[in-house]
Each structure stands twice: as structure tokens, then as C-alpha cells.
Amino acid sequence: MKLTLSLNGHSTELVAAPGARLLDVLRDAGCTSVKRGCETGDCGACCVLLDGEPVNSCVVPAAFAADAIVTTLEGLNDDPLMRRLQDCFLEAGAVQCGYCTPGLLLVAWQRLREGGELTEYDVRHAMSGNLCRCTGYAKPVRAVLDAWEAMP
């Protein structure tokens, strides 16, 4: 099955096997920031933005992405807000193994883009679908708050 979508700002044609999940076609397309962690939608390592909304791509059929706008971390690496978040993650010591980091960065970026007030509870709520086994979430939460406080 051929799939036309906007992937990280570029109109892209991907080939998807019948029943393929968005996670698999994105990794096959070289988006290695999209991680396979559970394949049941429970861990958030495969988080991508589908038409601007965070989704767990392991439970999204690839066909759902037809004509959609898909954004992975690769597509945001040049974005100033994402760079600030990445710097705050590094500065706060929020990265240990780094496997869940792309998912955490994406949900945090999305939450910061929404704007408005941001409490620690809000950050934890935004991250609640992303499992991290290394950090106990303390430093990732701190990093997002740091990035928010530094926003213009």
C-alpha cells in the first residue's frame, strides 16, 4: 500500500505493508527517534505528532496517516523551542539512557506550544503517558519547567 503524507514538513510517499503500524513505517523511513517500547500504546516511546496531536504510533495503523501531517523529533530538531527543551533536558540531567527522551520531548514541546500557565502538575499530567524507568521523572519535569520559565 502506498501512503502519501507530510512527514516532517516534506511531502512523502511511503510503502506500508497491509496492517502495518505507523511506528514501523516511520522507523523504516529513517525516523529512528520513534522508539519501540511496548507495542500496546502504554509507554509513549513511539510518540509522534499526528496532525499536531501526540499519538502513540505503535497503535495507529499506518493507513490513518494517509494525507496527514506527521511530525517526529527529527522534524523539530531545528525548531528553537525544541532546541531550548533539549538544552534544558541536558542541563537538568534529565537524560539517562535516552530511549524515552524523544517521546518526552515531543509531549513537552506540544504542551509548551499550547501556551498558558504551566504548573508542575501540568507537566506531570502531560508526561503521564510516557514511561521512563531511569529518571523517576524528577529531572525531566524540572527540565520542562525550566524551558517554560525561559520562554519569551
Binding site: 527529527e74 541536558l90 527522551t101
Partner: peptide, 11 residues
């Protein structure tokens, strides 16, 4: 740290 926050193919 840098390659991990950029999601580079390192695993």
C-alpha cells in the same frame, strides 16, 4: 547527551 536528545540512530 546531544545525540540522545536529537534522536540520532544510536541504539
Amino acid at each position: 547527551g546531544e545525540k540522545l536528545v536529537r534522536g540520532r540512530p544510536v541504539f
